[in-house]
Simulated assay, not measured.
Amino acid sequence: MMKKLALGTALCALVAGAGYAQEINVKLGVLNDRSGIYSDLTGEGSVVAAQMAAEDFMAEEGGLNIEIVSADHQNKPDIGSNIARKWYDEEGVNAILDVPTSSVALAVAQITADNNGVLVNSGAGSTALTREQCLPTTIHWTYDTAALANGTGKAMTLAGGEKWFFLTADYAFGHSLEENTAAVVEANGGEVVGTVDVPFPATDFSSFLLQAQGSGADVIGLANAGGDTVNAIKQAQEFGITQAGQKLAALLFFITDVHALSPETRTGLSLTGAYYWDQDEGAREWSARFLERHGSMASMVQAGVYSSTLHYLRAVKAVGTTDGETVAAKMKETPFDDVLFGKGHIRGDGRGIHDMYLYQVKSPDESTGEWDLYTTVATIAGEDAFLPMLEECDFTKK
């Protein structure tokens, strides 16, 4: 059923198991980019992932009446904030899922806390969600900019990329990614020789790439994501930058981005992620179901929406309420052994702790199919991937 909201389009899916008593009503809002540069890696795919989580929960446990709505925040904090307020104030939403674009996520996190909901974030990257702007009702499940830096940034520096120049998306996520990666580069003997802020979103990277080309850097760090990263990589190849010997560091890169590039352009690129469809049999089985419903393999953000939604629903069932602080506390109290993210837990600051992986994109000769794109180079233990918790953000002690 489709219905029009004042601030976006909402897809409503009622998921109920026959024969179960509907004791607790749960309404989930998937808030993301449904029309812009992040729509492929979040968008409708995240709605599908949330629906799959609800269906799987009802098949396994039942006892909840689950409704899912969705809306497009257009990567704008004011629009995202207005949708979140409407959902909480007028429509009875209990938790908001996904929320890529860190500036939007940070605004929605505060609105969520004010309304005693839960922000179950998969799409945003800023570490501020569990540090400078930590809140008791924020769960940050999939990745953050520190984990990306500890993967791609560290690996490329140790491989000889000592001089870095950053092209940085000019908003909270881009600056967080640059800051975290620069710290890792310097800690491993490298240096930052220059940076330039790039308007978000952008289509023409020519002037910024030329600055990077003339900087003498070994590595051009792309502190952006989605369509911005894809466009920057394509234009760097057109200018002959990579052919001349400079390397590109796609600091946040998704399988949907890799798939969008030609084999010649993407071969050999390194990236850090939390999930890959071919990592084990459980991931392959789930990914086949997702592919059948959505038409592409899931990004790690979409996979994160599935897993974090399941964890949220299990917590609601366990505590018997949708009260935000109570549910968030239960999510932190309960370790997980997830089909897509493996064993892990949520710290007192809301940061999900699980392994991360360093991947390299396969060449056409190495690939056996359309989505056979990654070779796993290294596993980064969760405790090493993410920043340590700030004492003042440990809400289990408050």
Rank of each mutant, 00 (worst) to 15 (best):
G350T: 07
D355T: 11
H294I: 04
S287M: 01
A315F: 12
F254D: 10
G348Y: 08
D337K: 11
S296F: 03
L340R: 06
D338N: 13
G304V: 13
G344W: 04
F290T: 03
E325Q: 15
V301R: 00
R347T: 13
A303Y: 07
A274M: 11
P263H: 01
R314F: 05
E292D: 15
P335R: 12
D278Y: 00
A298F: 04
V327L: 13
L291V: 04
Y312S: 09
Y312V: 05
K343C: 13
T322R: 14
G344A: 04
D338G: 07
G348L: 05
A274Q: 08
F341Q: 03
R284N: 02
M300F: 13
V258Y: 00
P263R: 03
T265H: 05
A283R: 07
D278R: 01
R351S: 01
H345N: 13
A274V: 10
M297G: 02
S287D: 02
A298N: 04
T265G: 01
D338H: 14
D338V: 13
G304S: 11
G282I: 00
I346E: 01
Y275Q: 03
S262M: 07
A328P: 14
Y276Q: 07
L310F: 05
L310K: 15
T334S: 12
H345L: 11
T334C: 09
Q279V: 07
V305C: 12
L261N: 03
R266D: 08
D337V: 06
Q302C: 07
L313R: 05
F290Q: 09
G324Y: 05
E264K: 13
G342K: 06
G295E: 12
K343W: 09
D278M: 02
W277D: 09
T267K: 14
F253Q: 08
D278E: 13
Y275M: 11
M297K: 07
T326I: 14
Y275G: 10
V327A: 06
F336C: 11
R351D: 02
